[in-house]
Amino acid sequence: MSLVLDLVSWTMLLGGVFLGVSGAVGLFRFPDFYTRLHAAGVTDTLCAALILGGLMVQAGWSLVSIKLAFILLFLWYTSPTASHALAKAALRAGLGPRLAEKENPPSKS
């Protein structure tokens, strides 16, 4: 049984790390600020959930798990606020997004 739990938590941890790396790669690969925002969103949502979830499986039913759940709750409550504030500030400052209608720029690589 504990082997199954270990397997589950390792898969979740590895999946979380993979999503984190994907988001970081997206940060380099996407053409403009607004699209990079979406790449960062991946690391803020499912990546955090998988890593904290994997740790929760290891901790079992305990206060440690409750704390991990609170960390996830805070991250999920604050990250959309931060993203929204960032996007709004950028748009207000006149940073125009590149949109698909005009052109479809290839990624920078």
Binding site: H38, A39, G41, T45, P80, S83, H84, A87, K88
Partner: peptide, 23 residues
């Protein structure tokens, strides 16, 4: 608006009585 932003791929930028500006 928070749900829109929380799902990767869409971000709510402005919001008022009529609707939401989404990228």
């Amino acid at each position: 608006a928070n749900s829109i932003t929380l799902t990767p791929g869409t971000v709510a930028i402005e919001i008022d009585e009529r609707g939401v500006l989404v990228h």
